[in-house]
Design a protein around this nucleic acid. Structure first.
Length: 943
RNA sequence: GCAGGGGUGGCAGAGCCUGGCCAAAUGCGACGGGCUUAGGACCCGUUUCCUUUAGUGGAUGCGAGAGUUCAAAUCUCUCCCCCUGCACCA
């Protein structure tokens, strides 16, 4: 039995000592293969491992294909999560401490030190590195760095100075989810329950109070319904502020003022009770109608402005509110529920008062619950947006969805409306510390302007030259190129590189990870020559990465030896000519797309991305890995339990790139058994001997070589499942069949095992080394060549012949079963089996028919005149299925017969009967004429 | 809502571009048998239904429906359903 732990240690040591993975430029073609580096706020789990081992396997494959491959690894420290985690540990968060103890298996003594974020990050970086080594990743560890290393920071500063020079950094305002206690932007993972704050624009239409120079700011998603406004609703139990924004005064609820002050500079001039507002009127800015102000039961004070316009014909809330007022005897003036949108055609009935229709008020009555009202509102909104047409106003006849924007823009243009942002989540969103998240318009914020037209154009033209595996993701990338827009480039908190234009902030953590692969190409040279951060002035990177400037000048400016600078440049240019970048497919819409943009912006066309490889995620026993299910297996535990190679194989060789892999224990045990079979087979080689090749040997050789060909093509596409189905599962099944059939040729078996071992090496590197050694080799598989296909040994004839033998054995099984039931054969035993191989003319006639689809044509062109009758009799059996006939492999009857003669022993043993084979023309059997091409006739005798 | 990717047998998952050898690879599971003290492993067979006392013939069938074709899992159209992403966050 293979002792996985022992062989892993043994071969990892051997690789290290032979410096197999320490790559330097040489005269071979280079290839820099990278994966999105690890973010080290927790141990590496099986999901990360999938990407890493997939990338490693690809790197090993390309190395075997003759490339000088570099696979480096860095650690991502940037951003908030490490900081946040340390903070939670410092606060002794029991849930997190439990995870650290029981899921991450961190010793108690370490946990207490992890209140220091750097300690935490270093701990998990070391843990991840150890895990990567245990998994057999072939990494050049000399090039390791973290994103807070001073030298790396200099590189990132330089990157941003380039972006600035190119005009791709812009400063501006932008709405973000915001926590007022932290004073920082919040994304989904900063909130309770991980809810993504949803920011939406809302139009605020100004209805003037004719008695004062103050406006009612009516928040609405549907400005086009302004033609149907009957009144204004306010909350009569609340206090409103008289708030000045940009010199204009509004009635805004106090609560809304607090929220909106994150978006506007607001001066509160005074207060007024909601009740007082009811005495006022308001002027519709578009129709100039004067409408009353009424109490609205549903007015939420912290949403929008706390003031809305009422459109009872189209808004269920407004309708219900007015009807309830009417019922309660509130003194209402005459109001016209004016329909302004019509749905024509289609299957949707559009009632005269749409809001009423959608409410089905007939049954529900006015006591309808708010959530039902909410639902009715959504329905009517959806239907009218889809199918509605304006029947009033300037844009009468236009679809509502178009009119909405037109009217909004008109109102804004005439200063009758402004836009605000609101948090549109159904439930309020809270920051982790419990503060309610609001929308803030951040000003003077630096952005990377991925929306820049010229930049986009460059990316557009670069994209077709980038190979995307699998290629079906290309439309996604094309879409994302257009979609990507302004992205905040700085943040107030977190680890990382200070933002050069605002050093109190740090560079946003995904933005420092877009061209870092460049740094791998010379970081070891900087380390070896003790280059420090002060020396890494922009001129250094300009020359090394962009071939700009003068090396002598750069040397004197930086104090770095000119030969060192030159070496860095050569190394960069060597490795960056050919690259492949890998990551989980979840990073497509940020990391990958930003990777492309930044490369295109900063690097010369020669060094643009060459290949990007997003891979599907990993399921664990059919389930998504998640902490709540408790199956986020730290990968080191899996390796200890199952062995690195079985884990690698199960995670990456059971699915092609674009599909999710299902990691299952059953795969692990099946892999281990198959490995044992290979070990046993090698042990049995001693009992075999070399001999002249027989049919079954040719068959195995043919299978082997066509497999090499197919597997190589699959490997080139990183379709590991397809490749290893053939290389591993099929080979083992074929070897078993080969032995079953009596195959015993040492040369053939050895050759097969050797080549299969080589092909296993990328995915199961340790086992492959072990097998290689068992085969008596003294070299490292990791440094061997990938096998090449010997086309001359691919024999369709051998494969088809063997297929015919297999089919014939099936047929014999059937016949024996059926004839055994015949009364005449009761009590008898199977005596002999006669196999009668079809004559050559049958194949010829059959194939002519398959081609021409006409019996008469074939007959009329038949050469041997006197045989025409025989031929037509033979062909007539196919008359009813002419269209479906396919040409059969042409195999000479003699060689078919020879193969059957060689298979006689096996068939005889299998059926426990005498077996003979003969040609149709030489047979005296009555059943002889039944022989078909590829399907001999069979005669069994019971005695 | 918008965009992209999908829906195949008990399950997972090929095939679809380039229509016919597809009742549909392969793996798992289940069932029957062999081997074994037993279990595991391994080997053989079965795994839509009907029919067949010589290796057969037929029906249904790849989300639903319609169409093109001598022929459709595969091409076209309509519909239904599922997954992923929609950002300032690793």
């Amino acid at each position: 039995m293979l002792d996985y732990t022992a062989i892993e240690k043994k071969w990892q040591k051997a690789w290290r000592e032979a410096r197999v993975f320490e790559a330097e430029p040489n005269d071979k073609e280079g290839m820099l293969i990278t994966y999105a580096f690890a973010y080290v706020n927790s141990p590496m789990h099986a999901g990360h491992m999938k990407t890493y081992s997939l990338t490693d396997s690809y790197a090993r494959y390309m190395r075997m294909r003759g490339y000088n491959v570099l696979l480096p690894n860095g650690f991502h420290y940037s951003g908030i999560p490490i900081l946040a985690m340390a903070k939670r540990l410092a606060a002794k968060d029991p849930e997190l401490i439990d995870d650290f103890k029981n899921v991450y298996m961190v010793p108690d003594a370490e946990i207490s030190k992890m209140a220091d974020p750097l300690y935490l990050a270093n701990y998990f970086a070391a843990d991840t590195e150890a895990g990567m080594i245990e998994a057999g990743l072939g990494i050049d560890w000399r090039r390791k760095f973290t994103t807070i290393d001073p030298n790396f920071s200099k590189f990132i500063e330089w990157q941003f100075s380039k972006l600035k020079q190119l005009g791709f950094l812009t400063q501006g305002t932008h709405p973000v989810g915001w926590c007022t206690s932290d004073n920082s932007a919040v994304g989904g993972h900063d909130t309770k329950g991980g809810i993504q704050p949803k920011i939406e624009e809302m139009t605020v239409i100004k209805f003037k109070d004719p008695s004062a120079d103050i406006y009612f700011p009516c928040g609405t998603y549907r400005p086009e319904t302004i033609y149907g406004v009957t009144n204004i609703f306010v909350n009569d139990n609340a206090t409103y502020s008289i708030a000045e924004i940009s010199g204009i005064q509004y009635y805004i609820s106090k609560e809304a003022v607090a929220v909106l002050s994150n978006q506007f500079k607001i001066n509160v001039k005074g207060e007024i009770e909601g009740k007082e507002l009811l005495k006022k009127k308001a002027i519709n800015p578009l129709t100039k109608e004067e409408v009353p102000v009424l109490p609205g039961f549903f007015i939420k004070l912290d949403v929008g402005t706390g003031v809305v316009m009422s459109v009872p014909a189209h808004a269920p809330f407004d309708y219900v509110a007015l009807e309830r007022l009417k019922e309660s005897g509130y003194p209402l003036p005459q109001l016209e529920y004016k329909k302004v949108i019509e749905i024509k055609g289609g299957t949707i009935k559009h009632p005269e008062v749409p809001a009423l229709g959608y409410l089905k008020l007939i049954n529900a009555g006015l006591s309808i619950m708010d959530d039902e009202l909410e639902r009715a509102t959504k329905e009517i909104y959806k239907d009218e947006s889809h199918y509605g047409v304006m029947i009033t106003g300037k844009y009468s006849g236009r679809p509502e969805s178009e009119a909405r924007d037109l009217i909004k823009n008109d109102l804004i243009g005439s200063n009758d409306a402004i836009e605000i942002y609101i948090l549109a989540n159904e439930e309020p969103v809270y920051c982790r510390d419990g503060t309610r998240v609001v929308v803030k318009v951040v000003s003077d914020q630096w952005f990377i302007n991925y929306g820049d037209k010229k930049w986009k154009e460059q990316v557009r033209s670069a994209l077709p030259n980038i190979k995307i595996l699998p290629d079906k993701l290309r439309p996604t990338f094309e879409y994302l190129v257009e979609w990507l827009d302004l992205r905040a480039a700085e943040r107030a908190h977190g680890l990382g590189t200070p933002f050069p234009l605002n050093p109190s902030h740090i560079i946003e953590s995904l933005s420092d990870s877009t061209i870092y692969m460049v740094f791998y190409t010379f970081v070891n040279i900087l380390n070896d020559n003790k280059v420090n951060a002060e020396q890494l002035k922009p001129e250094f990177f300009d020359y090394v990465v962009c071939a700009k400037g003068d090396p002598a000048k750069a040397a004197s400016l930086t104090g770095i030896d000119q030969t060192v600078i030159q070496k860095c440049k050569e190394s960069f240019e060597y490795w960056y000519k050919n690259t492949s970048n890998h990551s989980g497919s979840d990073l497509i819409n940020n990391h990958f797309i930003m990777y492309i943009f930044n490369h295109v912006a900063i690097l010369d066309g020669k060094y643009h991305p060459k290949q990007i490889v997003p891979n599907g995620l990993l399921l664990y026993e059919g389930q998504k890995m998640s902490k709540s299910i408790g199956n986020t297996m730290p990968v080191r535990g899996l390796i200890t339990k199952y062995g690195a190679d079985p884990v690698r194989f199960s995670s990456i060789a059971t699915a092609d790139l674009d599909t999710e892999t299902n990691f299952e224990e059953s795969t692990i045990s099946s892999v281990k058994q198959k490995n044992e079979f290979l070990v046993d087979t090698i042990a049995r080689l001693d009992e075999m001997s070399a001999a002249e090749l027989a049919h079954i040997d040719y068959w195995l050789y043919s299978k082997l070589n066509s497999k090499i060909k197919n597997a190589t093509a699959a490997m080139d596409q990183i379709s590991f499942r397809s490749a290893y189905n053939k290389v591993y599962y099929d080979t083992i099944a074929e070897l078993k069949w080969y032995f079953e059939r009596g195959g015993n040729n040492e040369i053939v078996v050895r050759d097969t095992i050797e080549k299969v071992t080589l092909m296993l090496a990328p995915v199961m590197p340790h086992v492959a080394e072990e097998l290689w050694q068992m085969l008596g080799k003294s070299t490292l598989v990791a440094k061997e060549k990938w096998p090449t296909c010997d086309e001359s040994m691919i024999s369709e004839e051998a494969e088809s012949t063997e297929q015919a033998i297999m089919n014939t054995i099936d047929d014999i099984t059937n016949i024996v079963e059926l004839t055994a039931k015949m009364p005449a054969n009761k009590g008898k035993r199977l005596g002999s089996i006669k196999i009668i191989v079809a004559d050559d003319w049958k194949t010829e006639a059959y194939n002519a028919l398959a081609k021409q689809k006409s019996i008469s044509n074939v007959i009329s062109q038949w050469k041997g005149g006197d045989e025409k009758e025989k031929v037509s009799k033979f062909l007539s059996q196919f008359a009813s299925k002419l269209m479906t006939l396919e040409e059969a492999k042409v195999i000479k009857a003699d060689s078919m017969l020879a193969a059957f003669n060689q298979a006689k022993d096996y068939i005889s043993k299998k059926f426990d009967a005498k077996v003979s084979a003969e040609l149709e023309s030489a047979s005296k059997s009555q059943r002889a004429s039944r022989a078909l091409p590829m399907r001999p006739s069979i005669e069994v005798a019971w005695e």
